[in-house]
Write a protein that binds this DNA or RNA. Structure first.
Lengths: 336, 336
DNA sequence: CTGTTAGCGCTTTCAC
DNA sequence: GTGAAAGCGCTAACAG
């Protein structure tokens, strides 16, 4: 491997001078020697050893990101995309992504080790839950991190999140604009920050339009297709005049459940029943009918996360610690 | 941050001694001083700075892994799982995974930079294609890497792969054992290494059972649901006595296409038609009927990949350079 | 058995 | 403008 020494020898200068030109210390080195050094670098194909640089500057240029636990069949295609985009954003900012794993039992030990051995400069957290202990831990430790998703309204930590209430609000208003009056929603069980926000958007839109929301119109369940099926089945048991003509689901998977059940009983989705999902999973556009859904701007989110973590690592003050990103309604066929 | 110096001072020894006990140089240090040092370490919560270690040993303890390009809607849930499992395997071997991105145009520059700056110790390649240029590049460069998937039968490089022929062979034999005689297959376009292997398994099983394979029984198409639908539609146009009673698809997505089309025309999958997919995507078990499929043992593969890359990085000789892993037939309902 | 010391490859004062 | 030299935190000869 060629080192800075080789280049110095090749260029007939000292290693300091080579370092100067590499790091663009303008005015610090004459144009003549700069050329010498550049030529030597080109000739040798030299690239500075990043580990040496890191030791010297006591940083790693690495952002740590824990994989969401994949084992429970709890696949989350959104997070897969996010990870990819995050890696891209990190690279654009001169970092790389160190992806690591942990489980419910050892997460603290894993984070602790990563911090104490100075493996990474900071963390990105996702898949947060209410009172997320990882966030509590990192706040306590004072180690740089930014979260995609909230944890507790009373905690002050840097995060980026989708404005879930707004997304659903827009979706419901779109439905209302189409003439729907009996609009229902399937959400997650109470206590989920993002789930509750989405529900809030629904209620606000309905309220502003003075549309009634009988309690049966708000169904809740786990993140399963079955949840959507169950909800529709239940609504089908209502008198025809009370049955919802449109449904918003808290996620695409649940929307798929609604659609599957509808098709099974002969309801034409997009005609007799409007369905809107949330997240725009990779499959959504290929479904029949193509799923209208609320898309989280994952690229913008990943960029925002990196844009906050970067100064945080550098010890610079943050312009803002909370960033709410507006989602986008992707109109396809199922809202028909 | 506490360093080895702090611990030495705290323990009243030299930093060398501290280093010895950290690295378990047995017999090199008396039990008494070992205790001193251990106590000092415990007291200070000291953990060795990994960057310093890396510089000293000129390694990074990082394995580089490029994300498959996610943009073309070419989602590949298998690779998402693989990445997770790979990170786990790497960690079990004392490494971490550095996930990076590149596109079709800049991939060489990206790999080059990672290598020249000594960012990682080696690479894991996946999503390989015929004559994969990344593999050609890495072979030429002599940089340590292991591939999940093949590239060219004539190239000698370390890889791990699923024995796709064997998997389909077993699946078809299972179908034959169930009494099926008219078994068809949907594959990928010619020229795909793994696609062709799977097709080979099909042909071998059919041949051994002396079952005819009219050319119409082998359909090919892109990795789309539509491919499966088209295939079934085409077979439905055959005289009833010629229509296949069982179908094996080269992937679950294509199998889903077959099933969707079958349901649309009133064929009861699992009764009138047996369908077997390939890969066991996360959704497979939730489909209706639950999809029987051939699962690649991704955990074993990821472990095998790391088990090869590790000695490769250390410059140790490899016991073997090719590892074919046997897939597993997951019996659910769709095979009837 | 333990400590001194020479690097690993780079950046950055501080002289000249 | 350029170079000598002191580290960054750690490991590993090499003495003692």
């Amino acid at each position: 491997m060629t080192t800075i020494k080789d280049v110095a020898r090749e260029a007939g200068t000292s290693i300091a001078t080579v370092s100067y030109v590499i790091n663009g210390k303008v005015g610090e080195v004459s144009e003549a020697t700069r050329q010498q050094v550049m030529a030597a670098i080109a000739r040798t194909g030299y690239r500075p050893n990043i580990t040496a640089r890191n030791l010297q500057s006591s940083q790693t240029k690495l952002m740590g990101y824990a994989w969401h636990d994949i084992r429970h069949g709890q696949m989350n295609p959104i997070l897969d995309q996010f990870t990819y985009l995050l890696a891209q954003s990190a690279e654009a900012a001169g970092y790389h992504l160190l992806t690591f794993t942990h489980n419910d039992d050892n997460w603290e030990a894993v984070y602790h080790e990563l911090i104490r051995t100075r493996r990474v400069d900071g963390f990105v957290i996702s898949n947060t839950k209410q009172d997320d202990p990882r966030i509590a831990y990192l706040m306590r430790d004072g180690f740089p991190f930014v979260s995609f998703g909230q944890a507790n309204p009373d905690w002050d930590f840097p995060y980026v999140d989708t404005d879930g209430a707004h997304g659903v609000y827009v979706a419901v208003n779109t439905l209302i604009g189409l003439g729907h009056k009996r609009i229902a929603m399937v959400g997650w069980p109470e206590g989920s920050l993002s789930g509750d926000a989405r529900l809030r958007g629904y209620r606000r839109a309905m309220q502003e339009a003075a549309l009634p929301v009988p309690s049966v119109y708000v169904q809740r369940g786990e993140q399963l297709e079955q949840t959507g099926r169950d909800a529709l089945r239940l609504w089908r048991a209502l008198p025809p005049a009370d049955q919802p003509t449109a449904v918003v689901a808290v996620t695409d998977l649940i929307a798929i459940g609604v659609i599957t059940e509808a098709k099974a009983v002969g309801i034409r989705v997009g005609h007799d029943l409007a369905v809107i999902g949330h997240d725009d999973v990779p499959l959504a556009q290929y479904l029949d009918p193509a799923l209208t859904t609320i898309r989280q701007p994952l690229d913008a989110i990943s960029r925002a996360v990196v844009a906050m973590l970067h100064p945080l690592i550098a010890g610079e003050p943050l312009a803002y610690r909370r960033d709410l990103v507006v989602p986008q309604l992707i109109l396809r066929q199922s809202h028909g």
